[in-house]
Design a protein around this nucleic acid. Sequence first.
DNA 1: AAACGAAGCAACCGCGCTAAC
DNA 2: TGTTAGCGCGGTTGCTTCGTT
Length: 206
Amino acid sequence: MRNVLPASVKKGPWTHEEDELLSSYIAREGEGQWQALPKKAGLLRCGKSCRLRWMNYLRPSVKRGHISADEEDLIIRLHRLLGNRWSLIAGRIPGRTDNEIKNYWNTHLSKKLTSQGIDPKTHKPLSSPSSLNPNHNLNHSSSSPDQTKTISTNSQENISNLNSINPHSGPRSDDNLSHSPDDGFSSFLDSLINDEMCSERTPTAL
DNA sequence: AAACGAAGCAACCGCGCTAAC
DNA sequence: TGTTAGCGCGGTTGCTTCGTT
């Protein structure tokens, strides 16, 4: 019933012409109506593919390229707080998309933390008994299906707090790249990040 | 210079949530 | 109240590029 695509729907890498069609259509008509968009824009893509392409690549506010040390540090802190909630993390880093952050984490940061002796899932020392989980004794088996579903205890606690503050559908954010720094959710997240920074500097304060 | 493997990244897939009917 | 369609998210896949032998 869902996602039944006509055989003519194109897949694979986007061409420059397709990008132009999509960008010009959204410039004229705006975002939304993704299911109807491909037909109206003259694209042989599914709506999902169009949305993804726009969100992750074509949108003017998307900042592509090198991730700075500050951004990297922020990603690590946010991941410690939120776990694999990439859209939430992306929402705190202007111009970065959830997909980009997810990829960067999987290809760079998880390895970096591991090389530093830190479990990238729990953010605890790999040698610490508390970080040992019977489900993932083999730290290098990154392709293990259950590994990706695991969220640290700290993260889960924080997420439950976040959900209670942000009651509309928990992890969802209306716009990954837009910010509303005045709302309670955002303030709460800021305070969590600050707490993290303080506790790192004074570990005994825990 | 060619072959091979590893790493990086764009894109796809499946699922869950929500709003509309 | 139940069903359906649309949207968005996280996980995974597969292609491309880069590095090593």
